[in-house]
Design a protein around this nucleic acid. Structure first.
Length: 889
RNA sequence: GCGGGCGUGGCGGAAUUGGUAGACGCAACGGGCUUAAAACCCGUAGUUCCGCAAGGGACGUGUGGGUUCGACUCCCACCGCCCGCACCA
């Protein structure tokens, strides 16, 4: 009997201890090697790790281990995104304090993560709810406040009347609070904001520099920032204007179509509408109705364009004889532009719908270029347009437009802009060019307990006063109760009552805490000096940042990744950092998905409760406990609600961490979803055992494979050379694919090498004792060692166990990446596919150095080529060196 | 509606970026080992046609066209799926 089965449970614990004892994953800031900072998005401490974490942290760990082997000083830290509402919910439900609930969860998850064998520098670990972390964050807040990047303003928010808290937009589902189920109200509240819009242009422009980010994420951010260049135009109200509203300002990007304007529309929330509604109950009713219509996607999709004619009219800027009616319209948003538009029905779908409903003129002013006849007439097209049912939205030339007739859309925009800029209206130009952004300032106030307190004090006399440096940090009180809804900080009997730092009179602490996205907007910088007495140590942070490879889910494409880009700039503006972008490389991993199982009563069954049978060809599932048939449903993201989750700890207990890691890396490209299957995991485990068996078999061969570290013999047999070539070719391919995070390709190349190695091993084994090819033995040892070294980033425990079994006393985790012997990648002969008329008809093996003429001659001499030629000369022979030959008849 | 992406065997996927399509894995089938099973090992396999066989032919990367000696790859049109945003003026 050769060797025992590999026991991952025992081996993994042993190697994890060996790494920890030698502190090999602890990273020094001072190091002459090139730096490499790899970071996975840190987890929320929910209490258990899930398969998504396993996939995420495996990928990051492979990169960390690989880059370490490639000679880099690697920073690979881990922390906890630990503030947030779930801890408060747990406090309410289970009567545990958020703090102990959170730290217990962190302890449990840390223990789970450690069983994965991640090469993390645990000395840098922190949680965002650590006093030490949020104290630093309070300093940052005060610096941003001083720099004008944090400010207070009144704004509308989603208010949950049951939980008595503000909800983020994402936490409002179909108009109801996600937790309480109560209908969410819009409330006007004074809130803290970060001035992210100060960087709108920069955040947009710099996206072009992020060439190692997925195009998709950059596009999403571009759309989110939503830059549009247009004009702000003032329209003069004709006749008697309401007080303070002698003009109405609109924003447009289509000022070229100004001659096609047939109405103005203002938002129901426009100050003019509010003012007029005071004396107009019908208008007030209309505005009320607009507010009732939901703002959900579905509601908007189906909502009819509705307007209320205010009776006001405005003068057309270029045609004083013409006035346009002013409507309040339900489709105009107060939050964008000026909250007012001019309607050009001929060239805008909404305006067209609106004009059709209210019988307003529809004047075409842009016609398609190819509809103009030789004399410049477009009569035919205009007739066709006027009888049609839809607006014309494409490019073209201007018609019916006075001084811009005949100009292209772009030229007309310029001409109109200049004319408006030079038309003076009560001392100011009638129009001004303006760039508008969709991006709004970031509201960070949360009426919640478990977050970073905003370090300011409200004094009746002095207003907002920053908490003095000497009083920092503002600590979260621990004697809070959750027995009634609302913000426990606000309910606390004493916490908020403090004297004003300026006058000493009674004042009130800010009881709002910061959005937890603030916590995650700078944690990557804190990891570079996690114990510093300042938020960052600029010289150290600037050396490590930007993060070379950031890995996480696509769900953070906008929020976290945009906030972090802003925060990095804000920290640079306040002297804490000296960089613009936090993440040079971003990789968005796919999800882990699994089949769903549904019982007859409609409830979902967990994979562990189901037995799969496949007797008559079709896969079927039965409930293991009851034997009842279970329907196999669609493959979906692992989730508690569908119950299609697999617990990583179960997998690690059964098969070991390496099997879980290997399965995560095999088959599916990392950016796509991976389907978790029992068969797949079993297959991955089979490979773990196969490698172990190969090492065992090799050991059995004793002297045939030589000693560790022995030099290769000078004379190599052809079998030995073939194996060496296969090994070094695999090494080159794995090197390439790992660098590009194409782990599934690395895995395939490793399988190929394993197959080749197994063949050589059994050949060597079968050789008679008096006819042993020792050069093959040496090549087997070399290939096996290379295999183990290639496996090390992906299956580190197995690699250590094999490395040791092969007679080495050092750790494979501390070894440099093996050198590729380039000479082995070059072939002396090459087999070229030979095509006749573009179809492959055979092959030709020929020395690599053969000239084109020699290749041609050899090809023409081939049987099947001769037959195809039937005595004729070929029309052409295409020889692509080292690739292919095509004989064209 | 706008934007991004994808479409290759029974399944996941690979293809040196315009040069032998289907590597590698999973599932399947055949064989070996075994009293038996598991484990393990060896082998087969895109579809189809001709042939007893050795072999050989045709078709084949969502569909239709184009460029090219040559197209999964480039261009045009269409079909289908996924994701994001969305009354943004």
């Amino acid at each position: 009997m050769a060797i025992e089965r590999y026991n991952p449970r025992q081996a993994e614990a042993r190697w994890q201890a060996a790494w920890a004892d030698r502190k090999i994953f602890e990273t020094k800031n001072e190091d002459s090697r090139p730096k490499y900072y790899v970071l996975e998005m840190f987890p929320y401490p929910s209490g258990r790790i899930h398969m998504g974490h396993v996939r995420n942290y495996t990928m990051g760990d492979v990169m960390a281990r690989y880059m370490r082997a490639k000679g880099h000083n690697v920073l690979h830290p881990m922390g906890w995104d630990a503030f947030g509402l779930p801890a408060e919910n747990a406090a309410m439900q289970n009567r545990v304090q958020p703090k102990s609930w959170t730290y217990d969860n962190i302890a449990a998850m840390r223990a789970q993560l450690k069983t994965m064998g991640l090469s993390i520098d645990w000395t840098r670990e922190f949680a965002t709810c650590d006093l030490d972390y949020y104290a630093q964050q309070q300093k940052l807040f005060l610096d941003l406040l001083a720099a004008g990047l944090a400010y207070r303003k009144s704004s509308k928010v989603n208010w949950d009347p049951v939980d008595q808290t503000v909800l983020a937009n994402e936490q409002v589902i179909d108009g109801r609070g996600w937790r309480s189920g109560a209908e969410v109200e819009q409330r006007e509240l004074t809130q803290w904001f970060f001035r992210i819009t100060a960087y709108s242009d920069e955040l947009l422009a710099a996206l072009d520099t992020l060439d190692r980010w997925p195009e998709k994420v950059r596009t999403m951010q571009r759309n989110w920032i939503g830059k549009s260049e247009g004009m702000r135009i003032r329209f003069v109200v004709a006749g008697k204007a309401p007080a303070g509203h002698a003009t109405i300002e609109v924003f447009t990007t289509r000022h070229d179509t100004l001659f096609g304007a047939s109405f103005l529309a203002i938002s129901p929330d426009h100050p003019l509408a509010t003012q007029m509604a005071k004396n107009d109950t019908a208008l007030a009713g209309f505005i009320e109705e607009c507010h009732r219509t939901g703002t959900s996607a579905a509601a908007i999709e189906t909502a009819e364009k509705k307007g209320y004619d205010t009776g006001l009219a405005v003068a057309h800027p270029f045609r004083p004889d013409l006035t346009l009616p002013v409507y309040v319209a339900n489709f105009v948003l107060m939050e964008y532009g000026t909250g007012a538009i001019f309607g050009c029905p001929a060239h805008d779908q909404r305006d067209f719908d609106f004009a059709t409903k209210y019988h307003l003129p529809i004047i075409p002013v842009v016609a398609p270029l190819d509809e103009f006849d030789a004399d410049g007439d477009v009569v035919a097209w205009v007739e066709q347009f006027e009888s049609g049912q839809e607006p014309y939205l494409d490019d073209g030339k201007l018609i019916n437009s006075d001084f811009v007739d005949g100009l292209t859309v772009a030229a007309a925009k310029e001409a109109v802009a200049q004319r408006l800029e030079h038309t003076m209206l009560s001392g100011a130009p009638q129009g001004a060019r303006q760039t508008n952004f969709r991006l709004r300032d970031w509201g960070i106030s949360r009426q919640r307990y478990w977050g970073c307190p905003i370090p300011v004090i409200h004094c009746p006399t002095h207003g907002v006063v920053p908490a003095p440096e000497k009083d920092l940090p503002v600590r979260l009180p621990e004697d809070v109760s959750f027995d009634r809804p609302g913000n426990p900080l606000d309910h606390h009997p004493t916490w908020k009552h403090v004297p004003c730092p300026i006058c000493g009179e009674p004042a009130r602490r800010e009881t709002d805490t910061m959005d937890t996205f603030v916590d995650s907007s700078w944690y990557f910088a804190r990891f570079t000096a996690p114990h510093a007495a300042t938020p960052t140590v600029k010289s150290i942070a600037d050396r490590w940042l930007p993060v070379d490879q950031y890995i996480g889910g696509i769900e953070h494409a906008i929020l976290h990744l945009l906030y972090s880009r802003f925060f990095t700039r804000a920290l640079t503006a306040t002297g804490h950092l000296g960089i613009a972008e936090p993440f040079a490389g971003l990789f968005t991993q796919g999800m882990v998905v699994h089949e769903t199982y549904r019982r007859e009563d409609g409830t979902f069954a967990n994979p562990a409760e189901v037995t799969i049978t496949g007797e008559d060809g079709a896969r079927r599932a039965v409930d293991t406990a009851t034997g009842a048939a279970v329907e196999i449903g669609p493959i979906e993201k692992m989730s508690k609600s569908k119950r299609n989750t697999v617990d990583p700890s179960d997998i690690i207990d059964t098969y070991g961490a390496d099997t879980a890691r290997w399965f995560m890396l095999s088959d599916s490209p990392p950016e796509r979803d991976v389907i978790w299957t029992e068969d797949g995991v079993a297959g991955a485990h089979r490979f773990v055992q196969r490698v172990w068996r190969l090492v065992g078999d090799a050991r059995e061969l004793g002297m045939r494979i030589g000693r560790p570290g022995a030099a290769l013999p000078n004379a190599m047999s052809s079998d030995a050379m073939a194996l060496r070539k296969a090994a070094h070719r695999a090494l080159a391919a794995v090197d390439d694919s790992l660098r590009g995070l194409r782990f599934n390709v690395s895995v395939a190349r490793i399988y190929e090498l394993t197959n080749a190695l197994a063949g050589s091993l059994s050949a060597l084994n079968e050789q008679r004792p008096d006819a042993v090819d020792f050069s093959l033995g040496a090549a087997v040892r070399e290939a096996l060692e290379l295999l183990v070294e290639m496996l090390a980033p992906m299956m580190p425990h197995l690699a250590e166990e094999c490395w040791s079994a092969l007679g080495h006393s050092d750790l494979v985790s501390t070894r440099p990446w093996p050198e590729i012997e380039r000479s082995l990648l070059v072939e002396e002969t090459i087999t070229l596919p030979i095509q006749v008329n573009g179809k492959k008809r055979g092959e030709l093996t020929i020395p690599v150095g053969a000239s084109e003429a020699e290749v041609e001659a050899a090809v023409l001499a081939l049987d099947f080529v001769q037959r195809a030629l039937e005595g004729r000369a070929p029309k052409k022979i295409v020889v692509v060196p080292k690739r292919i030959v095509n004989v064209v008849l």
